[in-house]
Design a protein around this nucleic acid. Structure first.
Length: 460
RNA sequence: GGCUCCUUCGUCUAUCGGUUAGGACGCCUGAUUUUCAAUCAGGAAAGACGGGUUCGACUCCCGUAGGAGCUGCCA
């Protein structure tokens, strides 16, 4: 049983997406379940829009949970009850410190290099002021105890009890903190494996102390290194900490995102691009790396190109149309079937969906095509004369298919007694006006006979 | 400040005491060639630094430097 537990305070960024992917893969591989828990105990910062963004992002990535999402705040009652059971058992206590007193004590503790302890942790600290607000704190492990976290990535991490402070379980308004909620929920949900960012590594020691207080089973931890920006600094909005929907809008395929994210921090020998199907067979915690990795858009592009080639042409047409619409680009006035046929030739020339759309540029261009200096030069008098002789031949190609067109072109070049190098450039200049386009026979087929002949006519 | 974690080509990584330190992306060169790509062939490119341990260290230990995290009534 694994879980992905984002807090809905912003979009689902790429690091979170990778964490979700690893949890999802691990559960599926092991025949277990993967659940989603929305950690919304911070009422100030949690928003419904963020919840939706996370849900949408995960859906786009195809990382559906094995059950409905659990909203943590809805379980506040259970959390409170759990904390109170700890108080009753003497493992936690009520602390009546004012915030000024607390700040002073914390500063003093820090100056001495000790973790914060409240005087209220001791039973003989006096009678509680009647009606005064209080928080509930964990009675942290004693000075000579050690908490060991057995982490599948980081190894055994030992923390001295004196390093663990009497952290708050229940705030003064009796709502649970993150530390309490995580521990109680993971236990109640039956979570056995916790795969999360290593920003939680030191929290794992705290949580382990809490779990011990409850007398519960400690889950297996795997703290994965964070993803950094391409400058090695922490991921920020400037360099890639975008919501996953922005990657979608940049024209990446979800299966490519999964493959790229998988390799960011996980490896299996020399394997490079690992499809989701293969990953479902191969994923393991042993392959997780220990050092932070950086986002590399160039690599991401090449991975995406790989999956574009494998993708179904009709699907690419649909996705490409969605993108063009979203980007406000003109629609391509051709049927899906026609486009799919073209995509088959054009998709290995594009790394992303917008690039695929751009490949249609030469088809979309309106007649007469503008000519730059280079095309003008290519269309010499000699070349134009030759195109004039080619025109009727193309007009009579029986089936307008690239193999037949190619045969006609070759035959023409032979008849003219010239290499294709003499006919290709001017023909291309006439047909595309210098825009990038595929092989000429294919370009001719895609353009259609009428348009092709019309473009030839335009230059003569 | 204290505690914890990390450190192999520009990037993602393989290596788990003995290798010419391998692969991928990117880059460079060449081939192909009708543009741009794609493709194919080749190339440059790495163990942060300093000490140990050992017959032998990228690999184990210590230190230094750099990076990151935690140290919240945030998660």
């Amino acid at each position: 049983m694994t879980r992905f537990a984002p807090s809905p305070t912003g979009y689902l960024h790429i690091g979170g997406a990778r964490t979700a992917l690893f949890n999802w893969l691990y559960a599926r591989k092991a025949g277990g379940k993967y659940l989603l828990r929305i950690e919304d105990t911070d009422r100030e910062r949690s928003t419904d829009a963020a919840v939706q963004a996370i849900l949408d992002g995960l859906a786009w990535l195809g990382l559906e949970a094995d059950g409905p999402p659990l909203f943590q705040f809805a379980r506040a009652g259970r959390h409170k009850e759990a904390a109170e059971s700890l108080v009753a058992a003497g493992k936690a206590y009520r602390c009546y410190l004012s915030s000024e007193e607390e700040t002073a004590l914390k500063e003093a503790a820090r100056a001495k290099g000790l973790a914060f302890r409240s005087p209220w942790r001791n039973a003989d600290s006096g009678t509680p002021p009647a009606g005064a607000p209080f928080v509930t704190r964990l009675r942290a492990p004693s000075e000579n105890e050690f908490i060991r976290v057995h982490d599948k990535v980081q190894g055994v991490v030992t923390t001295a009890g004196r390093e663990i402070d009497d952290f708050i379980l229940l705030r003064s308004d009796q709502t649970p903190t993150y530390m309490l909620a995580v521990v109680v929920d993971d236990h109640d949900m039956g979570v056995t494996h916790v795969i999360r960012g290593d920003d939680h590594l030191t929290n794992a020691a705290r949580q382990t102390a809490l779990i011990h207080a409850f007398g519960w089973q400690v889950p297996t931890y795997a703290h994965i290194p964070l993803i950094h920006g391409d400058d090695g600094k922490k991921l920020s909005k400037r360099h890639g900490a975008l919501g996953v929907e922005e990657y979608r809008d940049m024209g990446y395929l979800p299966e490519a995102m999964r493959a790229y994210l998988l390799r960011l921090g996980w490896s299996k020998g020399d394997l490079d691009i690992v499809s989701t199907e293969e990953a479902l067979e191969l994923f393991d915690l042993e392959g997780l790396g220990k050092s932070p990795s950086r986002l590399d858009f160039a690599k991401m592009g090449s991975v995406n190109a790989h999956f574009m080639r494998l993708a179904d042409d009709q699907r690419l047409v649909t996705l490409m149309r969605e993108h063009a619409a979203r980007a406000g680009q003109p629609e391509i006035a051709k049927s899906d079937a026609e486009l799919a046929a073209a995509v088959a030739y054009l998709k290995d020339r594009a790394k992303t969906l917008p690039e695929l759309y751009d490949q249609f540029g030469f088809i979309l261009a309106a007649r007469p095509l503008p000519r730059d200096e280079k095309t003008q030069k290519t269309l010499s008098e000699e070349a134009l004369a030759r195109l004039g002789r080619l025109q009727p031949i193309l007009a009579h190609v029986e089936t307008w298919h690239h193999t037949e067109i190619k045969a006609a072109l070759d035959k023409f070049a032979e008849a003219e007694g010239i290499g294709f190098g003499k006919i290709g450039p001017p023909l291309r200049a006439a047909l595309t006006g210098g825009l990038p386009a595929p092989d000429l026979a294919i370009a001719l087929e895609l353009l259609g006979r009428d348009e092709s002949l019309a473009r030839l006519g335009d230059v003569m």
